[in-house]
Write a protein that binds this DNA or RNA. Sequence first.
DNA 1: TCAAAAGTGTTTGCACTACACCCATGG
DNA 2: CCATGGGTGTAGTGCAAACACTTTTGA
Lengths: 251, 251
Amino acid sequence: MFLYICFMEQTKSIYSPYLSVDCVVFGFDGELIRVLLIKRKQAGQEVFALPGDLLDLSESLDETAVRVLNDLTGLNNIYLEQFGTFGDVDRISNPIDIEWLSTIRERPEERVITTAYFSLIKIEDFELKPNSFAEQVLWQPIEQKKQLAFDHNKIANTAWSILQYKIRNEPIVAFNLLPKKFTLRQLQGLYESIVGSELDKRNFRKRIQGKKFVSPLEEFEEGVAHKPARYYSFDEEIYKREFEKGQWFLF
Amino acid sequence: MFLYICFMEQTKSIYSPYLSVDCVVFGFDGELIRVLLIKRKQAGQEVFALPGDLLDLSESLDETAVRVLNDLTGLNNIYLEQFGTFGDVDRISNPIDIEWLSTIRERPEERVITTAYFSLIKIEDFELKPNSFAEQVLWQPIEQKKQLAFDHNKIANTAWSILQYKIRNEPIVAFNLLPKKFTLRQLQGLYESIVGSELDKRNFRKRIQGKKFVSPLEEFEEGVAHKPARYYSFDEEIYKREFEKGQWFLF
DNA sequence: TCAAAAGTGTTTGCACTACACCCATGG
DNA sequence: CCATGGGTGTAGTGCAAACACTTTTGA
């Protein structure tokens, strides 16, 4: 045992820090943008975090992201895009985090660098199943700030900025968050939630009507206490063709 | 020794892969966009690579990038922006790379994941000084494809795509590549080099004249065999103000 | 009949495109 | 005087912004 410890000390400078993957998954419930969080199995504490775990030596980063998200939340087959790697020396410094790590990991104080992935899903398409060290999985509204583990607030904020930037240049992100059939009110509400300002209804609808990748359906809302809205659908094939031609700016 | 090997085998699954940092530094010589490469000190081989090296456990990723670039090329005090982390399992597989790693590293076959940084500099502002394991430092024209070590071609291509994307949305990247005083011909040439198509001179100049962050100077070219061009300068303060207001699209 | 959201057109100005010729300089 | 790149203006077109009322439905 003594030898083992000595060796570990010695290897500290030879080896790299641990590497982990964290996922920021966004969803839209028709009104609010939400982020997927897990609640840790940690005795006596309520600690929330982004779903994430250590990389296994046999996996690529992308594979780790897929596995980790599935292990912790049950989510499967969803699009993930890498957006950054967070390598500050002190990103694991909160005693509560270290306490928790000591229950699941040797050498809990060891440095960890994490690569973050970003995803957009339709909330109602998936059923969440907490698993592994996640006691609970929840959809946290983005505007309700919650204290997260490690530097996960920083990571989530970075992802949020990227989403806000992307929706201006790649309108597909909006349709990834909406159901297959959606009303223009929903689409506009989603835009407004993300860009954070109100948009003119007539101009918004005019722009949408000019986009071939959004098609009106012959279906309408039912049981609403106002004129029922028409449903629309998104055609990814057409979108991609337009996108390649460079005519893909929605705003 | 046997024990040592055994332990290494055992730790493989405990420890993470090595972590390294690679830098893609772009420059513009007035005509061509170039990328900064190093030539390795490797006997009997001419191998070129992006400047990069392993992370030290005491450094953040950003600090590593700064150090590595300085160690290998002498470059100092330059802006670096992280743009991706490359973690494929087989990214170190070329025998020439493994042979070289065996001369500078224990366990050369060990997996390495690398975080890549992106930079834009004015070529003439800096003097290159090869150092460490760099035998030579060179500015390679971007359109002359060269076989690079590891997956550095993939990394450099990703950086190039990002530059092409950025110049459309963040015109500041252009001014990072130009001297403090530049002619509109130089600016237009730079744009054309990056976007890869020709632009209309009159329309280009009209757009520039509408931007408050580009100011005409009372200086002109000298000794040229044609009408001397006026020099212009870039005002980063004004740019940032416009940028914050969201009125920053050059195209 | 009321509340609530759906849906619809016009005008105005700004921005982008296409396009061709004279100017200043050095060799 | 020639070659080279610098520098300029206009007409036409299309997109974006501002803006208010009628319609349909359930309660």
